[in-house]
């Protein structure tokens, strides 16, 4: 009996504590910068220690008086526990958000989604529109953690005015950055897909693409013919996110058993072949 009790007590030790892997914290807006005609960079002090984010994790940002909305982490400053997001105002919450001035408080919970950091030496990171946010985080993270890694970035928008200061920020974290738009001022003219076709994708170990559904869909069409290439492509997907933690079922990736907010937002392209 004594022996039995002892076993049970030992076993007791591995009873798990039920602490969510993400937390709520207040935030203080400490800086806001208009990056381009359509994008704003907003920097927040994270008032509690909730750990650090890994790309391409996101937060549910609570804008008091409005909603809580999903936002990708764009940059993280570990020393100051400060995070930056890139916002494209599209509706009531995002428009109000970008109108706020430093000093204001809001809330968030995170960091949500699954870290997805494919290993390689040569990376091609592709971002369209506000999809540049997770791409920034990838560039910052990889340049800090993989010193020998080479990072090339393609950033695309419709108009030159949307490019703004993004290349300036990103140049700190990459080897090259090329812009894509319909103006002669960009490095490539046309869409990101036009630029992709002109790029020798075989040069890269890892290709990560973030942006609107049309971009991901067309990129998949290009890479799916080549199995070897397909295996090196990762897509950062956006969908409706309501709870962000896996119970509401809003973000299910149709045709799969995956939830964007738990299993994503980054997926190997081959997992999305018959889905996107």
């Amino acid at each position: 009996m004594v022996k039995k009790l002892k076993n049970t007590l030992q076993y007791n030790a591995i009873s798990q504590r039920l602490i969510p892997r993400y937390k709520y914290t207040s935030l203080k807006l400490i800086d806001k910068e208009k990056l381009s005609q359509t994008l704003y960079l907003m920097r927040f002090k994270v008032l509690e220690n909730i750990g650090k984010p890994f790309p391409p994790q996101f937060i549910m940002l609570w804008v008091p008086g409005y909603e809580a909305i999903p936002m990708s982490v764009a940059l993280f400053d570990e020393d100051n526990n400060a995070l930056s997001i890139v916002v494209k105002p599209v509706g009531p919450t995002t428009n109000y958000l970008v109108s706020l001035e430093p000093g204001i408080f809001m809330g968030m919970y995170g960091y949500l989604g699954k870290p997805c950091i494919p290993h390689g030496k040569k990376y091609l990171l592709i971002g369209g529109g506000s999809g540049i946010a997770p791409i920034m985080h990838y560039a910052q993270y990889i340049s800090n953690h993989n010193e020998s890694g080479i990072i090339d970035i393609l950033y695309g928008c419709w108009k030159y005015e949307e490019i703004g200061k993004i290349p300036l920020i990103l140049q700190n974290y990459c080897s090259t950055i090329k812009t894509v738009c319909f103006s002669d001022h960009c490095d490539y003219q046309g869409t990101l897909i036009d630029a992709l076709i002109k790029t020798d994708l075989k040069l890269y170990d890892i290709i990560i693409i973030a942006g609107p559904p049309g971009l991901l869909e067309n990129a998949l069409k290009i890479v799916k013919m080549d199995e070897d290439l397909l295996a090196r492509v990762f897509l950062v997907v956006e969908s409706m996110v309501k709870c962000g933690v896996g119970f509401c079922g809003e973000c299910i990736i149709k045709g799969t058993n995956k939830l964007l907010c738990v299993d994503g937002p980054c997926f190997p392209a081959k997992e999305l072949l018959y889905v996107i």
């Binding site: 602490i19 969510p20 993400y22 937390k23 709520y24 549910m60 609570w62 909603e67 809580a68 909305i69 809330g107 919970y109 309501k242 709870c243 962000g244 933690v245 119970f247 509401c248």
Partner: peptide, 8 residues
Amino acid sequence: PPIIIPLE
């Protein structure tokens, strides 16, 4: 949203 808050 917010419809949920994670707590300790």
